[in-house]
Amino acid sequence: MIRALTTRRTEMAPFLLLLPAVATMLFVVALPLIFSLWTSLTPYKLTKPNTLYDFIGLTNYVRIFGDWDFWEAFLRTIGFLTVALNVEFALGLGIALLINKITWGQRGLRTIMMFPMMFSPILVGFQFKFLFNDHIGVVNNALQSLGLTNRAIPWLVDAKLAMFSITLAEVWMSTSIFAILLLAGLFAMPRDPLEAAKVDGCNAWQVFRHITLPFLMPFAYIAMAIRSLDVARAYDLVAVMTDGGPAGRTELLWTLIARVGYDEAKMGQANAMAYVSTILSILFTWYFYRKLVAARRYMGGAE
């Protein structure tokens, strides 16, 4: 009898030990997810709590998929993501390659490179908003003083220029993530394959193209996976710099979601959009993660 009890107790031990973790996950992740999924199936308005119990099926989803504003924000987010990630990758790679060549003062430069990441995105947004201000901004002042233009360029007012300015701020803030990760990759890179490639007939560009770059790609995929999540949820920069304007021309998914959810109080519909956005993020992460796993399979042979 006693033995049976102790056996049962040992059998229970793993589950008991897992319980806190499981409970936390349930409470912090699963419950909000289920709750927001449920609200996306109701006409939930923050001002009318009772609407939480009206089940309306996929109506919210049908509505947003038929809504051109949503699709515009959706496509603009993907475009923003694509441009920002590629530019950051290219610049980060260039910076990493240059810093890797430096023998003196490298530590200092590496630290300085991190500075943009130390600022709150909101502050970066404000700073760029002032830089790009058409009347008192430094950018226009500089261009005019240099005699490159005598107009006040409406950086944050013209739809195309505004998107450009936001992208620039984003790139300024986050290029160093790529630079740091790629630099780590360059440090980890074994020298022998590079020398073997030189002997095998490669010039400097071919060594980079065929040996260095493939070796760095896993590091780039890590950076891309992190950054794709970051950029896909971009809100602060845009909210501060243009707040989605002019006339919704810089509206991204999350600024739209916040507007629908809080300004218009249509939380059900906002949550439906949020779900689409989350799935988009998951897709990006999954894609880069798969690339990473594929690239890492061969890295064991680098030694």
């Binding site: 074994p190 022998d192 394959p193 020398e195 073997a196 490639a197 030189k198 002997v199 095998d200 007939g201 490669c202 010039n203 065929h210 040996i211 493939p214 070796f215 690239a295 061969y298 890295m299 064991g300 042979g301 680098a302 030694e303």
Partner: peptide, 20 residues
């Protein structure tokens, strides 16, 4: 002359294979 113009080939201690 750079290595590629010397028409030699080399075997390294750590093999130096291209891992990818």
């Amino acid at each position: 002359l750079p290595p590629r113009k010397r028409n030699i080939s080399m075997v390294f201690q750590n093999y130096a294979l291209y891992p990818h």
